[in-house]
Design a protein around this nucleic acid. Sequence first.
DNA 1: AGCACGCCGACT
DNA 2: GTCGGCGTGCTC
Length: 699
Amino acid sequence: MSRAVARVLVDTPLPQLDRLFDYAVPERLVDTVGPGMRVKVPLRSAGRMADAFVIEMADGSEHEGSLSEIEELISEVPVLAPEVWRLARALADRAGGSASDVLRLAVPTRQVRVEKAWLAARAAAADARAEAEAEDATTPATAGTETSSTDNVSTPELDDVATRGITGYRSVDLVAAVRGRARLALDAVPLVVELPAVPGLPPRWVGRWAVTLAELAAVAVADGESAILAVPDYRDQEQLVSALEAVLPPEKIVRLDSRQSNPDRYRALLRARGDEALVIVGNRSVLLAPSTTLGLIALWDDGDPLFSEPLTPYAHARDTALLRYEQQHPALVFAGHARSTDVQRLVEIGWLSEVLPDPRYQPHVIPTTQQGSRDGFAANARIPSTAYLEARNAVEHGPVLVQVAHPGYAPRLACTECGDTARCLRCSGPLQKKSADATPACAWCGALAVGWHCVTCENTMMRSVGTGAGRTADELGRAFPGVRVIVSDGSRPVLEVDDESAIVVATRGAEPIAPGGYRAVLLLDGERMLARESLRVAEDCVRWWADAIALARRRAPIFLVGVGGTIASAMATWNLARFASSELADRRQLRFPPSVRVATVTGRTDTVETALDALPESIRKETLGPVDVEGGTVRAIVRFDYAHGHDVASILRGRVIRAATDRRKPPRDLRPGDARNTNRRTPAPTLRVRFDDVEPFSD
DNA sequence: AGCACGCCGACT
DNA sequence: GTCGGCGTGCTC
């Protein structure tokens, strides 16, 4: 007779165990165990237990040997949704990683209290339904936040969206596009807007992008479908949630992000597991949220590096979104003020359709390569005279934004005598000053530089090099006497300012929102920002500038200081798509990402070599390296076309599994005369593969 | 990772 | 003869 068999995925990072194992279901569990539940199973000799997810149930097994029995059902709550499993599998396969690594990000650890509340609510809802059916009445679901209701919401605001459409974009019916499951590259209108007053909530200004995404999500919910909205950081999330609260009842909005406590995340996950239409908002991991009725996925500002997952298998949220699109076919929206080269690539192959803002919203950007005026304080503050005059005029009416590259006071200090960088005497890290009268401190170890002397020339005096936000603020205070100066940087961010006169000095990405928008914007450190050595500098700068520009009042003057060339004219004409296109063309020329994909292969020399040898010749010949990295390992970079992604991933994955299984000692004759192998006790580094990492192309 | 199996060297 | 070393391979 057939006995109940559960196919499970064992929760382990070992690549060789990244497949399904069959276990017999003991009699006592036959009626309860099901897909998505956590279980404990014996692995290898009895006594060693491992956690696992039940993936599917079967009548029998292909396995030759005898089956072990499931040891224990951890919980009968099916925390792993089938669509999340499929996504995790596809993601791991594409990235050459293990599905369980993805699941660790997707499924929070169990919370018994939360689970009990959920089970109780579910039981209550089932009772209520039965009762309602008996009475043949339609009682709405009652009480508690855990109830599930499939009722469509209809708020006045939402009806308004559906009839009026979403405005600000050129000849596109965005509502119809979402309903038609379109794939869009949406260049957002660069403005701030005031949210409609909601009783009990303070008035609030947010980026207009947030309102647009909220409206799109509301359309999906009105159609009985869920939306997943992903943002790079919490400041964006705050804006988006506020915008959502203006168009949807709060119980339709679920936050799911990595800053939440585990119980909160678990509660959010269980809510998303129901079949209620919801908007699920969060950072990169929100794309792994369960949702069976997914009508929309939208990413805000996909070029932000916070969308790259720092944990194996390092998937980028954009790629997660694309895989999820393939599986569930929701509408897919990549929205941003600037356009990433990655999205541009998808536009150019005809896979995404562009939506452009109405040209009436084009910001008034004035590039000035001129290096500063002669008039006193403005010169110190690195502001060209035209910009200074405009800013002085504008600040009389409200806040003016000044964007700078570096926080602190003096980002770098140097010896007054020999000019060498001042370094920490303890750890050789560079010294910095946090404020004008602060004692210099080490950027690495934090030690205060008291009794400092230059290691090169023994001199004991140092001077500031470069200008941080604090020093700019001091100088601007003198340039604009009597005007309030507000500083916002990454460590002490200011989220909002009022609409009174002020000079707001902010590092990139930390710009506060001003009600009604800034009266003028000065983008000061463009030249320095562009000097960073990275494949994506230009693209990043355009994004940082565009996001700051979007905080300006309509028609406010925006000065891009010290930047010229195509990048400046792209900003001035607000043709950021064309800029992305020319960037992409350059990368194509050099065969750099995202025109091609890359994989970095790291490990012991012979392991890396055999891994590379396993690749087809056409791909092998596009290998850069291997080059030595620290710890007796080497690294190679493989470039390949998107069409070969599947092959490269599966071949390299095979090598990773082999390397993990194979514990033979390294060959004796590995590079004779190489001191590395003779003396050091290297713990045999295994083979590591990472896909689409841009870091090796930076300094 | 762990743990068992197995095939050669020194032992009662 | 056989005890146990670690090199090799597998995990339902």
